[in-house]
Design a binder for these strands. Structure first.
Lengths: 348, 348
DNA sequence: TTGAAAGCGTTACCAC
DNA sequence: GTGGTAACGCTTTCAA
């Protein structure tokens, strides 16, 4: 992005305030004429101790006047634990499905009084990343299985994490697992295309790195669904560019494929357009099937068939995390959470 | 999402390890037979002090054996500051453009040795949110201007934030600003449609809440571009559903609109399809213009014209943050960072 | 009802 | 070169 920042002179404004140092509870105590303990009692509404109303007011006023804000690090240091649930910020934008999932989850965890923090880990691999997360002493960690090994789980637990929950296609030793076996997506796709009479089935494998975790099991799922039948399955690499799609479409006749499961709706839209431009009729010559059930697929002509993916609700997941935190000794559980179903429209 | 988690019994695994307490540097010192200070020197590679090689080795081995991980809260408490840059996790999934922007930014800030944390603030409004952020004592905060008022800026600064940078269409008193005036996007769109000979111009305003911050200035920009001309500008509400689009398309003739700027490419695709289904010819009867320059727009027929939006690179932004942190006394600066240019294809 | 003091895990200063 | 010690900001027990 070659865009250059243009500096605009700041309009005259109020004089910058004197850079006071950060007010502490001691400052509040001093201003209110009470002890630090009293300040703590008042601001935390400690029920075990009864503070007179005038004192409460004085403390609150002092806190407000100073703009006092408690220091989270000091607090959790003293308490010996935090309510922080850590999850890695996704390295690649993973589409609206994942985004909504995250939002729901954050909301549900907030309701349970947890604080969700997405930690950007760039360049750190495996155990390095686990160590960086452990430094924050989160009470729970929610992480794609691809980013954490068994040693990573151990590091986090030793650092006091009461819950480690992974999600993705595989289990990780020692952690609770939300098993999203994308095999099921592929399996569903394979069965559908076979049922529609297709026998030479292509499966798009994105060329972009970072997606193998999902694309490989999806391909495997198709293979598995068609094992023992007369159908043939072919992996088809495709980058998310018009050029790549055009090149693939040009080779289409020689591939001899009569149906393609295109990883997701976006790749499906890209490929479908390229095939149409190359004169391939859809679905007569080749059926096209996407995944994710995006709204946009419905707008194409022919309308895009897709695999609808059911993710667990944020509320369920939050409750799982909470349960794990409350009973850290429990055996790691494995939950199968990914539902897949065909939405047949016109492209298959 | 009605999907129900299926519990799968855990396979037999290694006995769960004894729940030791979290190892501290004191434990490492004890095991290595040195003092806590020495441990600190060794693990932090303090250059001011020279430690014998055998001692170093003993410390490293002890740390490894115990699985010692330093406690970030304790460290920053002692240090009096952190390297944490805080940004709110977006409440609504904001498309691939924003996602890539965030990723680039995280990467660039990591290069400068900052730690990026996305803090999920659900339900907290304005100053409440600012206070929650302030508790973490971040060294810098990067936040959409819509989520922070001047008082919020003051709270954060009093809590020790050396840099507060807002981005979005408006400035916030006391903070550095990345002025993304979406007026420019609308302006660009208005000029283009006018130049194409259109005179009765509709501007889609998403019905979804949370987007007003962007949709309002875009509409204003179109108005502004066409002020004093013979063109007429009409705001057109549209929800992101097929039904809403169909209803709008049915009313299209009575609206008497010959060109529409559709907020972004996704709304444009939705509307364009509905118009086509209703028999409106594009671009002959009505021109359609999107924004964001998504790949998918190129796949439509007619190909979707769009406004390409140039965001600042993550590197530039990271450098701005770094500069602000290093010189917190500087006057707040305002940078104009949003470039808009027409990409004309076939729909306009 | 309030105050004094200990301690959470680290690091930096100053003696040894 | 290495080890004690104080201090960061907060909560909580105990004593007054």
């Amino acid at each position: 992005m070659p865009y250059v920042m243009v500096h605009i002179p700041k309009p005259p404004s109020a004089a910058s305030p004197v850079p006071r140092s950060v007010p502490t509870s001691a400052d509040v105590a001093r201003l209110a004429g009470v002890s630090r303990a009293t300040v703590s009692y008042v601001l935390n509404n400690t029920s075990a101790v009864r503070i007179s109303e005038p004192t409460r007011r004085r403390v609150h006023e002092a806190a407000k006047e100073l703009g006092y804000v408690p220091h989270a690090a000091a607090r959790s240091l003293r308490a010996g634990h935090s309510r922080m649930v850590l999850m890695p910020a996704p390295a690649i934008a993973m589409g609206p499905l994942y985004g909504q999932f995250i939002n729901e989850l954050q909301w549900a965890l907030s309701r349970l009084d947890y604080t969700v923090v997405q930690y950007g880990t760039v360049g750190l691999r495996g155990d390095e990343a686990a160590r960086a997360w452990a430094e924050l002493r989160p009470v729970a960690v929610l992480v794609p299985d691809a980013e954490l090994g068994p040693e990573g789980v151990a590091v986090l637990k030793r650092a006091g994490a009461r819950g480690v929950v992974t999600f993705g296609p595989e289990r990780v030793e020692g952690a609770h697992a939300l098993l999203m076996d994308h095999d099921a997506v592929g399996h569903c796709a394979g069965r559908h295309l076979y049922a529609r009479g297709r026998r030479r089935i292509g499966v798009v494998v994105p060329a972009e790195t970072g997606l193998e975790t999902y694309s490989r099991p999806r391909l495997e799922g198709v293979r598995q669904a068609l094992r023992g039948t007369d159908a043939r399955v072919t992996g088809v690499p495709l980058a998310y560019t018009e050029q790549s799609a055009a090149e693939l479409a040009a080779r289409w006749p020689e591939l001899g494929i009569d149906a393609v499961f295109a990883y997701n709706d976006e790749y499906a839209m890209l490929l479908m357009r390229a095939l149409q431009d190359a004169g391939v009729r859809i679905p007569e010559d080749t059926a096209v099937l996407g995944a994710d059930d995006l709204m946009l697929g419905r707008l194409l002509r022919p309308r895009l068939s897709t695999i609808h993916i059911d993710l667990p609700s944020g509320r369920e997941l939050a409750e799982l995390v909470d349960r794990v935190v409350r009973d850290p000794g429990a055996e790691p559980e494995t939950h199968r959470v990914l539902g897949a179903s065909v939405v047949q429209r016109e492209s298959s």
